[in-house]
């Protein structure tokens, strides 16, 4: 067919062109924060106290989480075309709009996050502090630690899953328009959160514990990713076309093909590395090379999470509902 379009807007033709790296990073950081909230809660809630509370991953992560989330929201803010109108998010609630839910959720998540950060401040740190507001407030929060951890556990899941819901609600963008997408973003968020926990943890057994957790998460992530593609492949023409860029080696779609290749290597490699770690002999302290491998596999997981966000944000904008018909 010979097609001539006169009067097309650059923002939608030849492809949708609305969200870029800023939104991809926001989604990544949102998912990562969710994972951190949930996993640091796990660390503190773990029955049998596998993870001692003075571990950096137990108290530093809750401090980092709100900063990462704010950074993510900053990137989102950068993407808004009318920044001065931002207050309108909070003068209304639109029950059918995922972004309205999301903007409120982001606000509501901060208080438990911050309170939790106070509650987990280790005693050694507090003893070195002057007797100011921070110390007194941290002391007052400490008895609520477990309750706050439970709230953070739930909030982390909500946050991570939300980052996928927004994209999945557009009938016009078939690649995103799948109920599997929020699950993918949830699992990916959790696995990246766990990966950062591994990097931050000092103690051998803590690292090993989260490595075991991550193996299951990455396995699930690979499964969900495959199901996303398989679901699209077995759906109608519109959806089948939507995943085409990932399986097309032509110049135009090469980045998407590359992203699949990367994910296909990163994630399984991370699993293998982790599997080797947990099956290894850890009766003695970790060797530097063992530590390096552990951290490297965690970095691979973080990169994988980033690639998933970038690939899906961009590829989703290539997909349209039924072409020009």
């Amino acid at each position: 067919m010979e097609l001539t379009i006169t009067g097309a807007n650059a923002i939608t033709f030849p492809i949708l062109h609305i969200w870029d790296w800023r939104v991809a990073i926001y989604l990544f950081l949102g998912g990562l924060t969710g994972g951190l909230m949930t996993m640091s809660a796990v660390a503190n809630l773990r029955p049998g106290k596998v993870v001692p509370r003075d571990q950096p991953c137990c108290w530093r992560i809750p401090l980092i989480a709100p900063i990462l989330l704010s950074l993510g929201m900053f990137f989102l803010f950068l993407d808004l075309e009318l920044k001065s109108h931002m207050f309108w998010f909070y003068l209304t609630f639109q029950p059918l709009s995922p972004m309205s839910w999301g903007s409120w959720l982001l606000i509501l998540i901060y208080p438990p996050m911050i309170l939790y950060a106070f509650a987990v401040l280790p005693d050694e740190l507090k003893s070195g502090m002057a007797d100011g507001f921070i110390k007194r407030f941290a002391d007052r929060m400490r008895p609520h630690l477990l309750r706050l951890a439970r709230i953070n556990f739930v909030c982390g899941i909500l946050l991570a899953i939300y980052t996928g819901i927004l994209l999945s609600t557009f009938v016009a963008r078939p690649l995103w328009n799948s109920a599997i997408l929020p699950v993918l973003f949830l699992v990916s968020g959790m696995s990246t959160g766990t990966a950062l926990m591994i990097i931050m943890a000092r103690k051998n057994e803590v690292k090993l514990f989260f490595t075991k957790v991550d193996i299951w998460l990455i396995f699930t992530e690979i499964m969900v990713l495959l199901l996303l593609f398989y679901g699209h492949y077995t759906s109608d023409a519109v959806h089948r076309l939507a995943i085409m860029p990932f399986f097309n080696t032509s110049h135009q779609f090469f980045p998407y093909f590359l992203s699949i290749v990367f994910l296909g290597i990163f994630l399984p490699l991370a699993i293998v590395l982790k599997f080797l770690e947990v099956t290894g002999d850890h009766s003695v302290e970790l060797t530097p090379s063992g530590k390096f491998l552990m951290n490297a596999s965690a970095v691979l997981v973080l990169l994988g999470g980033l690639v998933v966000r970038f690939a899906l944000v961009y590829a989703g904008q290539l997909s349209g509902y039924g072409g020009i018909m």
């Binding site: 075309e81 920044k83 931002m86 309108w88 709009s97 016009a172 904008q317 509902y321 039924g322």
Partner: peptide
């Protein structure tokens, strides 16, 4: 309008 562009993505 805050210019979030969700509506642009949503329009088939």
């Amino acid at each position: 309008c805050v210019g979030c562009k969700a509506c642009i993505a949503a329009c088939p």
